[in-house]
Write a protein that binds this DNA or RNA. Structure first.
Lengths: 174, 174
DNA sequence: TACATCGTTTAGTACAAACTAAACATTCTA
DNA sequence: TAGAATGTTTAGTTTGTACTAAACGATGTA
């Protein structure tokens, strides 16, 4: 048997690549994270180049993205001016970071659109039936978005409780 | 003042387009849903063409996608052989449908990769230190995926309780 | 100061996804 | 049965994104 460890690792890397792509992140990010996650120690950019098959440029870009999301962390090695990185192993923390990240950017702006539209409608006076209808629909939508927002915020606020809380929720939902 | 209702609606449509794109769906889907959501009655494909600026082909494709996700519903008009559609207004139901949809497809397959890799490792025997390390890491990852999976499943199982349950969760998380 | 070693940036390329335009199939109507 | 109205499918175009290759800048070393 002696399953080829190298082969297994490689499968895992390409698996995470796909998951990454599925969730709208570059597949390279998934690959890099996978390599780091399976490494006992910090890796340099060149080692990542060697193990992922990507070029230095791509590694550089994606590593910065991963670090911004909190999925990996710089890990300086004394007496070596290269940049080393390690994978975050607390996934709940990573999820929180990603949610935090996503809440800014386009998403909030788009959601704000609903809010603004609704306010304009309500302030607009007039009593056409259509206006009333639109207000009602937008209110319902805004209520939904607000609930989502609260939920995300709540999740983002969980710290070390992470796992326990999730399990608590699961029991309630059962 | 008499804010231009048409303009407001148009802003809303383009806002939802962006949200749609942000979550990895075609922007056209968002636009079509927005138009239907702001319409008091069912609309035909041609009306959707007129109000979104998309072509019939795109409308046809995206409408099918939206219907499959349960975000809109066919609404036959007697004595008219055209296809009419209305928007789903219960967003919790829609979320459930989307989660259901996403659970199949690539995602599960990719997650299964982790499971498979882990099993191969555990079955492989051998006692190199690296093997033990890999098993530990993959176990942690699998545990996380399983928790996510349970959560998604639980949410997908909420029915009419929907809103109440979400609010219950929010209180707990507070 | 020259040279080597890294990481970043930039210009170009490859690829995937969503759309348009138009041919096509189907169903109703005169 | 001919023709009009409607929805779907297909081929081709556009667009955006992630990548490669290579120039560049910066930082250490002989």
């Amino acid at each position: 048997m002696a399953e080829d460890l190298g082969q297994l690792k490689q499968d895992f890397v390409s698996g995470l690549s796909n998951i990454s792509g599925f969730w709208g992140f570059p597949k390279g990010m998934g690959a890099i994270f996978a390599v780091l996650y399976l490494s006992p120690g910090p890796l340099s950019l060149d080692e990542l180049v060697a193990r992922t098959g990507l070029t230095k440029g791509a590694i550089s870009t994606n590593v910065r993205g991963l670090a911004r999301l909190g999925l990996i962390h710089p890990s300086a090695q004394l007496g070596d001016r290269r940049d080393y990185y390690v994978a975050e192993t607390d996934f709940y923390r990573a999820v929180r970071a990603i949610l935090q990240e996503r809440r800014n950017s386009d998403f909030d702006r788009a959601i704000a659109t609903v809010q603004v539209t609704l306010e304009a409608l309500e302030a607009g006076g007039g009593s056409e039936p259509e206006r009333a209808f639109l207000i009602e629909r937008l209110r319902a939508l805004k209520e939904f978005f607000d609930a989502l927002d609260s939920l995300v915020n709540a999740v983002a606020r969980l710290d070390s409780l992470g796992l326990n809380t999730v399990q608590t929720i699961l029991k309630i939902l059962k």
